[in-house]
Amino acid sequence: MTFEALPAPPTQAPDLADDFTDPVLREDRWIDHYLPHWSTPERSRARYALDGDGLLLRIDEDQPDWRPEDAPLRVSNIQTGNFSGTAGTTRGTHRHRPDGLAVRTPDTTRLLWTPSAGRVDVTVTAPADPGGMLAVWLVGSEHLSPRDSGEICVFEIDAEAVGDRTTTARIGIKAHHDDRLRTDMTEVSVPVDAAGPHTWTAIWGPGGTVIGCEGVVVGRFAQAPDYPMILMVDLFETGGRSVSGRYPRTARIHRVRGWTGA
């Protein structure tokens, strides 16, 4: 298969740049909780390490499920913003569960990097232990309107889909509660071993959305959300506890670069 080359990154300095070389996670760039308003702090808090070679997201053996209702589902995540309404309401970023989420832990609105159009490059190493999934999403903040809920799925990679020479990933657009969008998801096979470092790209704006991997285009979509978007990087344990008994499950985030309005 022949792939089209991605556009080169912008020449100007990125608005979001992190190699995760600081000794602590930058609070001016990241929130280390997965959608904390729908859960409680001990359940939404990420497990991770900064070890000089990037950010190592972990799922630990003693880590609780994100919500008891969703068990088994454990998550370690970092994100560039968050919004929630008051306790008991249904207002908040990423109303993605079909069972009717309600705010449990009201959170201050934090918009650290939330472009309405732009480009993001994320270099990652995916998990290898079956039952794990690594994902990168751009999701509508919803702080201006609950319609602003669409998602750009930059990729979702199941550990079982990682091969020595090719990896299968899910990419595309999810409308969620935005009736101006339509869900358009697809699976792509990319010629990379995702168990090693590789870079995914999303470019979105008035002309639509382009998703790339390792410098080539792997998907084009003729639509794009046009409201503030939050970058989320997530490691999930979706299939219950590891049958091998090995913990922690891990995935590494080597580098993030983001340009607003690029």
Rank of each mutant, 00 (worst) to 15 (best):
A8D: 15
D184S: 14
E156R: 03
D99P: 01
P98S: 10
D184W: 05
T90V: 12
H177A: 15
G261A: 14
P64Q: 11
F155Y: 05
D53G: 12
L111G: 06
D18V: 04
P206L: 07
S116Q: 12
E42F: 12
V233Y: 01
V75L: 12
L55F: 04
V190N: 00
G100T: 08
V136M: 02
H37L: 09
D164V: 10
S145C: 07
G208N: 06
D193K: 06
V136H: 04
D51A: 13
T168E: 10
D65Q: 09
A128Q: 06
I203W: 04
S39Y: 08
D19G: 13
I230T: 15
A222E: 15
G258Q: 06
R74I: 07
D129N: 13
W137G: 03
T2C: 07
D184L: 10
T168I: 08
P130Y: 02
V124G: 05
P41A: 12
W259E: 05
T93C: 10
D148F: 05
L57V: 07
I78V: 15
R58E: 15
I31T: 07
L112N: 01
H96D: 14
P7F: 01
E160L: 00
A135W: 04
F3Q: 06
H96V: 12
I157V: 15
P10Y: 00
D107E: 15
N77W: 07
G150Y: 01
T123F: 08
D184P: 06
A17P: 06
A251D: 07
G54V: 01
P36Y: 09
S116C: 13
V256K: 03
G240K: 10
S76G: 11
E69N: 05
L181W: 03
V154P: 01
G219A: 15
P10G: 02
Y48T: 03
A224Y: 06
E151Y: 03
R97E: 10
M1Q: 09
S145A: 15
P225V: 04
E187T: 07
R147M: 11
H33S: 09
I173Q: 03
L138K: 00
V139G: 00
T167I: 01
F236T: 01
A71V: 08
D164A: 14
P197E: 12
H177D: 15
T125A: 13
G92Y: 08
M232R: 08
S149D: 15
R43F: 09
M185S: 09
L101R: 10
G52K: 10
D70T: 13
T183G: 09
M185P: 02
D70I: 05
P98V: 08
G215V: 07
E69G: 06
G131T: 07
H198I: 06
E61M: 11
W259S: 02
P115K: 05
T238G: 09
G54I: 04
T250P: 04
G212T: 01
E61G: 09
M185D: 08
R170Y: 08
T209L: 01
D28W: 05
V162K: 03
A224T: 03
P68L: 09
W259Q: 06
G88I: 11
S242Q: 11
V190E: 00
D32E: 12
L56Y: 01
G54P: 00
P191M: 07
W204N: 01
A262Y: 12
A87M: 11
R47E: 11
E142C: 10
